[in-house]
Design a binder for these strands. Structure first.
Lengths: 194, 194
DNA sequence: GTCTATAAGAGGATAGAC
DNA sequence: GTCTATCCTCTTATAGAC
């Protein structure tokens, strides 16, 4: 792997762990086994490298969600699969985490990939809700975009609860609770709870 | 207001805005109009001051939730009132925000007030679910603790979506979606959506 | 209690040699 | 492309005078 690539991956890891403010150029260089000059050769400054790293993480997370969204099963089951996907509750969301950083929110260059990822996930989830409504899995009165936002919010908030408790338990509880609420929304009969 | 108090309030504001890593003693001093020596007279170090500030914020947020939880209306309506309480979507949650800070998660002294606040809110919300089940507002199969975690997660996640979008809209959508899901869980007739 | 002085180290680069 | 040297500011204090 070339140096530029190692720098991006190191920045991705550090942004996940420490956020933008907490990520120092020095730490990036050490993790990437690259020198000062090397880093500033490939990237103009810390923000430029962070921008590349954030875009990369957002793409990866979006691509990985696609796998759940396109499985050959009912819309509700695809949503449940997405909610149940293996996640490291205590590490938090690589992309959602960035929203806490004022420097990222303030800089359109840094915020844009984050915004775009959530917008696209909301759209896709809303489309799944509509599909589920046609199949009778969700009642017609459910607002698709609202419900999609709720699903994404549960995931993001579940990470917060897990880190607060220093335990994955509240994460899994929040997910289970959301699934239970969703399963009760249709006219199609379903098993009550796993 | 005395200096010690001003230091705590300044730290509360800075923790909300910038997190623990992003809050420098210098910034605290300026905001509190206190000198270097003054701050280190009242608090041993940055962590000690942060600890006092975090505990204060957690207490305040918990007390404010109590107001919604003890209103004289049905359990479901109290939950809805809690979800609908005026919140500054773009600023995020003063307490939930802290969970992103590795230094806060790593230090039991700093994490404990955060953990305690979420644990207590979960308990109280779970008790409201149980109450609502007795009243027929929620079906008996709903797990109270799971559902309570889901409600808290929706709120915390809604802040994330709002900051990502730089708009309060997804925040309000996520809340509306959650309320819509909750309203469909009982045998008691309710108006479909506001 | 508050102020000023001092300080070792990290943060975020720039410059120029190789 | 990568390395080392250099720079200035900020961070997080400590010490001691007032």
């Amino acid at each position: 792997m070339d140096t530029r690539e190692r720098l991006i991956e190191s920045a991705q890891a550090l942004l996940w762990e420490r956020g933008y403010v907490g990520m120092s150029p020095k730490a990036i260089q050490e993790k990437a086994a690259a020198g000062q000059g090397s880093m500033y050769h490939h990237f103009e400054n810390k923000a430029a490298l962070a921008s590349a790293a954030i875009a990369r993480s957002a793409e990866q997370l979006y691509a990985s969600a696609q796998q759940e969204f396109t499985q050959p099963c009912s819309a509700l089951d695809r949503i449940i699969a997405y909610l149940h996907r293996e996640r490291e509750a205590l590490r938090g969301c690589r992309v959602g985490r960035l929203t806490q950083d004022p420097e990222i929110i303030a800089d359109p260059q840094l915020r844009q990939p984050v915004q775009e990822m959530f917008a696209k996930l909301t759209q896709e989830l809303a489309a799944l809700i509509v599909e589920g409504q046609s199949a009778g899995e969700f009642r017609a009165e459910l607002n698709p975009e609202d419900t999609a936002s709720t699903i994404l919010a549960v995931l993001q908030g579940a990470y917060v609860l897990a880190r607060a408790a220093n335990s994955a338990e509240p994460f899994h509880r929040a997910i289970a609770g959301a699934i239970s609420l969703l399963q009760q929304q249709g006219s199609v009969k379903r098993a009550p709870r796993k």
